[in-house]
Each structure stands twice: as C-alpha cells, then as structure tokens.
Amino acid sequence: MSKEIILSVTDLTKHFPVKKSKDRKKAVVKAVDGISFDLHAGETLGLVGESGCGKTTAGRTILKLTEPTSGSIVFEGQDITKFKHGKMTSLRAQMQIIFQDPYSALNPRQTIGKIISAPFEIQGVNPTGGVKNAVQSLMERVGLNPEHYNRYPHEFSGGQRQRIGIARAIALKPRFIVADEPVSALDVSIQAQVINLLDDLQREDGISMVFIAHDLSVVQHISDRVAVMYLGKVMEIGPTANLYHSSHHPYTKALLSAVPQPDPRSEKSRERIILSGDLPSPINPPSGCVFNTRCWKAQDKCRTEVPQLVQLGGTQVACHFPE
C-alpha cells in the first residue's frame, strides 16, 4: 500500500506487575509482549484473539491510556511513546476510542447532548453554528433522532447507546479510532446496523481504525488487514482475504475452524480442529512459542526457540512449522 502511514507501532510491550508471587520474585503479567505493525490512512486493522490474549490492552496502550512498558508508538510522524498527559490531551482530538459496553461507557446522569458535546468542551473547540447544532448533526449522522438531545442514556437501547458512543468518538473528526469490541454486546440484527454505520463513517471521513474483536466473522467484514494475537504476541498478520483463505499459522487455522457458521449442512460434515486445554497464564507463559502447549504440531524446537514473524505467502507468520 502506498498510502501514508498514520500509526507505527514497534515492539510494543505492556507488563503489569503482580503483587506477591509464590516464589517472592517480582512477577509480571505479560499482557502485550512485543507487537509491531503499521496502520495506513483509511485502513482498518482487525485485532482478534481469545480473552486474555492482550488485544484490549494493546488498543489502550496504543492510545496511551495505559503507559507502555517498552517499545515505541509513532502517530503521524511524532513519537508519542514518552508524551505526558498534557501533550496527549491535545492529541486526543485526533485519536479516539469506542468502548465495548455501551452501558458503562456513558454517564447515566448526563444528557445525550452533554455526553456528545464533551469532546468540544474538553478540547475548547467551538464548532461553526454552535455546539448544539454540531451535536444534533452528529446524532443525525449516526442514525439517532436529534430531538432526543435532552434524553438520558437509560432511555436508549443497547444499539442506540453504541451509536451515542460512536457520535462522541467522531465529534472532532479524528484521524484514528480504536474500536474495542464495539458490537459484541449487541444482538445480531442490531450488530449489523452498527457495523454498517462504522463502515460508512470510516469511508466518508477516511478514518484509520484498529478494530478489536473476538468474533472472526465480524472482523472479516470490516477489516482490510487482520492480526491474530495469542498471549500478548502477534501470531499471524496479513491482508484479510489472505489470512482467512490461506492462513499459515496453526492457531489461526484452529481459530477459524472453531467458529460455527450458520450453515447446518456444512457444519455437520466439516472437519473441526479442536484445541485441547485453555489459554496458559500470561504470568508464566510457555517458553519458546507461546502456543506450543496447545499446538498439535509442536516439536522440541517450539519449546525452546521463539519464532519470529516472517513473510510467508500472503501473510506474516510466527511459526517454526507453518502450514
């Protein structure tokens, strides 16, 4: 892709200290353990993985909502890794987040008008035509009735609340949005509406997006590229079509085969890769390749040597024995 690079993340790690481990050593949860990627203008990168794989922490760390442990984040040519609170605040107009749970992301004691106008207030922006006008046109844009300006969050359904969160995120015309599981709390029929809305907004405004989700079918629909995470590391990353149709990493393959599809005939005949066990603890991740404890192809090399991301066919894969 020849488009300009908006965001460049290099070797990003985020370790959380854990109090009092059994052997009295300083233990850390390696939530994000060395991820790198570039994000181009107008591009959507899907970040998928199971719970505890570090996808949410990755999203929050990129926005510096938590301080990275090491690595660098370059946003529009500026290295923001070491930026302090004040400098970040002025940047926040350019980088926004949409949260997973539309119930807890909105202050129940504020009206919708107040919630959506908060970005203007914080950034000291005076939109032409006044704040109320701007908020109402935002509401219209995300498919809410502008007359509901004075209502409170409890008067809205889950899907509508997510629209409110989206209106707030796009208020200042950001260049970059992290969408953290924006549709997982919604019903299917509503989920499709919100995905389509995000798709439209992104296209119209040319927003770059990191779309975090555990649902691989949702991610396929919205992403240009997809990164599969496992225990804080990127296992495989590549253009959506390549990753879904010719993935090379055993974990990607297992993940894809585990998603039940609404097609009974193929479901009942399909070969499924059933992984044994659960995600290992990120406090004490397996040595070598972190996936080796659940991988059916694991050999001695996988237990000792950490595989690096290398280009293979259409995707980059971190595996000693790719498919």
Binding site: S189, A192, Q193, N196, D199, L216, S217, Q220, S223, Q261
Partner: peptide, 25 residues
C-alpha cells in the same frame, strides 16, 4: 430471513456489506 441475512459469515467472497434489519425490537 432477516437474521440469516444480517449474521456475518466467514465467507469466500470477503467483506460485502451486511444486510441489517432496520429498527429495533
């Protein structure tokens, strides 16, 4: 029919637009 159309699938054709059911229950 609306449900079947709106549910995202891992598909061969990739990312065509989802056909959402308008409105809410």
């Amino acid at each position: 029919l609306g449900l079947l159309k709106s549910v995202p699938r891992i598909s061969a054709t990739g990312s065509e637009r989802l056909k959402a059911i308008p409105g809410q229950p």
